[in-house]
Write a protein that binds this DNA or RNA. Structure first.
Lengths: 210, 210
DNA sequence: GTCTATAGCCGGATAGAC
DNA sequence: GTCTATCCGGCTATAGAC
């Protein structure tokens, strides 16, 4: 494994666990067993390392997800919201092929990108991968045409938050669940529990004026 | 206003905005216009300052919320999940009496407490204010007795995540919403949009085995 | 490409004068 | 209680030998 990949892998695990501001280059390079200066040599800066990390996943996820959403829209006359959210599962799980824990790592990084670092990553994602959001909005609109664009806006952000937050605390939650219920739970299990929740949330009857 | 309060107020705004690790004592004391050493003199450490900050709100919120939940449980034969979540609105809004933006600041701090600082605050809250969670679980159980304890567990965590995350990005979202829809939105408006979403999510039909 | 060494800065915390 | 001055460690980033 070359130095660049060693850094990416170590950084990913640490960032997912402790956030971007909470992880130093010293921790990363020592976990990767490479020299401290290697990050700046190979990536230029900590910020660029973070971007490269997200890019590794987004370049795989984006086309997978757009294909999956398009397929589910074409095949179904009576598209349901559950089907829309189901369309996320397979693309997300393919990320496990990139790296062990890829799916959960990616989602946790996504979570940190919203709260850490004053949103520079949020900007990076929305400007570089606009297709993801557009397709998603189209699919939701097809499944639930009565939803106003304002409700759509809020509910999609709530959904993003739910998913991202669930993933950020997943490792802790899985431990608790296994103690309390003796139930085996993995990342796919959490995603599958999440789907009915967010589908029902997005599909809730509108009661708020405005 | 005494120094201690000046520090608390300045720290609260900065922490809510940039997180705990993202805010330095130097920023806090200069915003509060007090001496750098004052934080350590009055609170002992940054960690203790954070705890004091949360305590200021939790000591008010906890009894309000327990009372509100108990009232809604007693008054209703056919309790709905919407009613349970409605019971949160008033207690949360009373936090605005403690300080301008109190509600949104508190919820944002709560959000950061889950992602920042390896969960030491999560521990602090659950061990010091267990009544909040217990009452909430009881109320949800009364409104939706068929929900298994395992589904209850996951959905309450999803709900916590939705709420907390929505609040963490609320200031950004409100700006976008006002640009896109020319709609006036405040923190209460977001909370009221959140309620049907999480109520529907928690009340979704169970489809997952296990 | 990889290393050591270090610059230069910022972090939390404290000692001690007033 | 409040101030200045400072310690000391950690941080990102870079210069320069190999």
């Amino acid at each position: 494994m070359d130095t660049k990949t060693k850094i990416l892998n170590a950084a990913e695990n640490l960032f997912a666990d402790k956030g971007f501001t909470g992880t130093s280059l010293r921790e990363i390079t020592s976990a990767a067993e490479v020299n401290l200066a290697a990050v700046n040599y190979h990536f230029g800066s900590k910020k660029e390392l973070i971007k490269a990390l997200m890019k590794r996943y987004l370049d795989v996820l984006s086309p997978e997800l757009q294909g999956s959403l398009q397929r589910v829209m074409e095949d179904n006359e009576n598209l349901t919201l559950e089907q829309v959210f189901e369309a996320f599962v397979e693309p997300l799980l393919t990320l496990n092929q990139l790296k062990e824990q890829g799916t959960s790592n990616f989602l946790q990084l996504l979570g940190h990108s919203y709260t850490d670092s004053q949103g520079f990553l949020r900007w990076f994602i929305t400007t570089n991968y606009p297709g993801i959001i557009d397709n998603f909005v189209m699919a939701v609109h097809k499944a639930y045409p009565e939803l106003s664009s304002q409700d759509m806006f809020w509910r999609l952000h709530f959904t993003m938050g739910t998913a991202v937050f669930a993933m950020s605390s997943t490792s802790a939650l899985i431990d608790i669940a296994q103690n309390d219920f003796n139930a085996e739970v993995d990342i796919e299990g959490v995603i599958r529990r999440l789907i009915p929740y967010v589908a029902a949330g997005v599909g809730a009857n509108t009661v708020v004026a405005g």
